[in-house]
Amino acid sequence: MLHVQGLFFRYKNITVLKDVEIGLNKGEILSIVGPNGAGKTTLLKSIVRIVKPDKGTILIDGKDASRMNRLNLAKCISYVPQALPSKFPISVFDAVLMGRRPYIVWKPSKKDLKVVADLLKSMHLESVALRDFDQLSGGQKQKVLLARAFAQDTDYLLLDEPTSNLDLKHQMEVMEMISGMVKKKGMAAMLAMHDLNLASRFSDTIMMLNAGKVFCTGEPSQVITVENIKSVYGVEARVNRNSGHPYILPIRPLN
């Protein structure tokens, strides 16, 4: 279980995260939603220690993450960032092989290569395996980054807006790959999401973040409500509950 307790993060004089509590069980998908600047990305980065939180503890299966070294942390949590540097001159195979880095001492073993090859095959990336990462489409790039995170072989997977900038089909494919992997390997995934409908369709739990504070947490049907969207996003919306998952239809911004 990934347990975040009393997390605070301050940037200059602005409090970005305020007393955030999260409990994430294996086999579950948690989506963190909220308006721009709510602190979603900072929250994920604090958990993988890309940034250092001011206060709070992160327990990974009971162990304090701040006492683990980076390499061991990288064996527990993988992270898919929102964007990469504009140029990333490396082949797709090598990009995925990077995910094995926490396990490689001098050179990749047969097992490392096999893990990468299997992932590329199962994610339908074999045809581009030796192409340059830079030459891929946005959707393929996201899948490669996902494959890299899977190659890391961790129990916890953190993704920062994995579906932004993707077309409809790639959005569905990426989300299905994530939920498939969570089910198959008993991982837990935490996603920062903008698309409330995708979040509600694929998540076990949704956490709504507003101005660095947890506004509410619960099952999608509890969290995605007309009132919550109104007070957190300032948007008038309709919520349709016919299909099993709440589905929102935004109407207009409120002032």
Binding site: R49, A74, Y79, L84, P89, I90, D94, W106, Q152
Partner: peptide
């Protein structure tokens, strides 16, 4: 030469590199 992996990872950005265990 021992750091060549880390140099590769730096190309993927500081954030990715940190998340993959590079100091």
């Amino acid at each position: 030469l021992k750091w060549s992996w880390d140099f590769n990872l730096l190309a993927a950005g500081d954030e990715s590199a940190k998340a993959l265990g590079v100091n």
